[in-house]
Design a protein around this nucleic acid. Structure first.
Length: 302
DNA sequence: AACCCGTGGGT
DNA sequence: TACCCAAGGGT
């Protein structure tokens, strides 16, 4: 009988091997993005990170340039009405991010003397800045050694080290431990590692149709070596869209954005036939501070 | 912890 | 076409 070769799963690659493969790849393939310019201010980095929350790079670039030209520093933005931030947000989506960025600019102006703070702990205290964004701004703008765990990093580590096709539905303690374990000890190298793994996930180790033939980790990737097994973990419940409040709110805000002044209530009615839902969404937009009621109708907050 | 919050491009 | 996905955060 043929000697049974136990199909032992490959061990996760050592951190040093990951670094040796990913860092040179990044040096050659990194995109040139304006917020990666060494001269980009911490404020520019913060604005980019908030805009990039759930929004692709391609749609962010133009709006980011307009924002930074118009508001080069946090006090510049804080000096204007929040509604200006919402209007300038354009169609990036999740316009509450614009509101929170304006609130963050105000907090930076009042509590940090107009300077974006450098530590993830201080950054985390700003509106709209969560675990990921605080780590990213600390690392990319200030060279702080921080665990930057976005959807790209989680996917790359899940595949290369975990041998599974994707990360867990929500961030787990095990993923944090894994990411901390592979983070280079030297702060400067750790910052480059963070952006390099993110870039690999964005360009090569993509969610669908990963380009393993072009991946520097392919020879040591547990998922690739195992033959790209299908993901069999817990699945995230699909998000509905048609008929939801999100869709209704989006149309209402879009109607105000498309005009230059207050929009009369009568002009809001046609965008959503269900009057009850429309009224509820309008009330929630007022509650959120995304719109306000003025003599002429509804407008962005002045 | 599960759910809510926009938008547009790729497949 | 319908669905998936994108540098998440707040509650």
């Amino acid at each position: 009988m043929p000697s049974a070769v136990p199909p032992r799963p490959p061990a996760p690659p050592a951190p040093a091997e990951l670094h040796a493969r990913v860092l040179p790849w990044y040096a050659e393939h990194a995109r040139t993005l304006p917020w990666r310019d060494p001269d980009c201010s911490p404020w520019g980095v913060l604005v980019s990170e908030v805009m990039l929350q759930q929004t692709p790079v391609a749609r962010v670039e133009q709006v980011w340039r307009e924002w930074l030209r118009r508001w080069p520093t946090p006090p510049d933005l804080a000096a204007e009405p929040a509604g200006e931030a919402v209007r300038a947000w354009g169609r990036l989506g999740y316009p509450r991010r614009a509101l929170r960025l304006h609130a963050a600019a105000t907090a930076i102006t009042e509590r940090f003397d107009g300077q974006v703070p450098a530590t993830p702990e201080e950054l985390r205290s700003l509106p709209g800045v969560g675990e990921y964004t605080a780590a990213a701004v600390g690392a990319f703008a200030f060279g702080v050694r921080a665990v930057v765990l976005d959807t790209n990093v989680r996917r790359v580590l899940a595949r290369a080290c975990g041998g599974t096709g994707q990360g867990a539905p929500s961030l787990t303690a095990a993923e944090r431990r894994l990411a901390e374990g592979v983070l280079p000890h030297d702060p400067a190298t750790s910052a480059t590692w963070n952006v390099a793994v993110m870039e690999l996930g964005a360009l090569v180790c993509t969610a669908r149709n990963p380009r393993c033939a072009d991946c520097p980790l392919a020879p040591v990737c547990r998922w690739a070596l195992a033959g790209h097994p299908a993901y069999d973990g817990p699945v995230r419940a699909p998000q509905r869209w048609q008929g939801t409040d999100r869709q209704c709110r989006g149309l209402l805000v879009d109607r105000v954005r498309s005009g230059t002044g207050p929009v009369p209530a009568a002009d809001l009615a046609p965008v959503w036939p269900d009057a009850a839902q429309r009224d509820r969404c309008l009330a929630s937009l007022l509650e959120d501070g995304l719109l306000e009621q003025v003599p002429g109708g509804y407008a962005f907050p002045a």
